[in-house]
Simulated scan of single mutants.
Amino acid sequence: MRNDVRKLRTEHGWTQVQFAEALGVSRQTVNALETGRYDPSLPLAFRVSTLFSAPIETIFFPDENDAPPTGGKR
């Protein structure tokens, strides 16, 4: 899954530590999100969405390796 977390966080002027504290996660989790090494749980994605006042689908989006939306065959 790809995301715009780093771009949005920097646009808001937040450090990784500040953003992590607002989300209730570690700075390492924020770093893993930003580098694409970690896909957030749905509750965490909602918290990110709320902090940025943006719909989840404008922050997180599938990449070519993700399953199709139907979860079925390609």
Rank of each mutant, 00 (worst) to 15 (best):
M1S: 10
N3I: 06
V5M: 02
R6I: 11
K7L: 08
R9W: 13
R9L: 06
R9K: 00
T10G: 01
E11C: 03
E11A: 13
G13K: 12
G13P: 12
G13T: 15
W14M: 15
Q16G: 10
V17C: 00
V17N: 13
V17S: 13
Q18N: 07
Q18Y: 00
Q18E: 15
F19W: 08
A20I: 09
E21F: 01
E21Y: 02
E21D: 14
A22G: 03
A22T: 07
L23F: 14
G24L: 06
V25W: 04
V25I: 13
V25N: 02
R27V: 01
R27W: 05
Q28V: 13
V30A: 10
V30D: 07
V30Y: 14
N31C: 05
A32H: 10
E34G: 09
E34A: 08
E34I: 04
T35P: 03
T35N: 15
G36K: 02
R37W: 07
R37F: 09
Y38W: 05
D39R: 13
D39M: 10
D39N: 15
P40Q: 04
P40C: 07
P40W: 03
S41G: 14
S41R: 11
S41L: 07
P43I: 06
A45I: 03
F46I: 12
F46D: 09
V48R: 00
S49M: 03
S49E: 09
T50I: 03
T50N: 10
L51C: 11
S53Q: 15
A54P: 02
A54V: 14
I56A: 11
E57Y: 08
T58M: 12
I59W: 14
I59E: 02
I59M: 10
I59K: 06
F60E: 08
F61P: 12
F61M: 11
F61K: 12
P62G: 06
P62N: 02
D63K: 06
D63W: 08
E64W: 02
N65C: 00
N65E: 14
D66G: 06
D66I: 00
D66L: 11
D66P: 04
D66M: 13
A67G: 08
A67D: 05
P68V: 14
P69N: 02
G71A: 08
G71M: 00
G72H: 06
G72L: 15
G72C: 04
K73M: 00
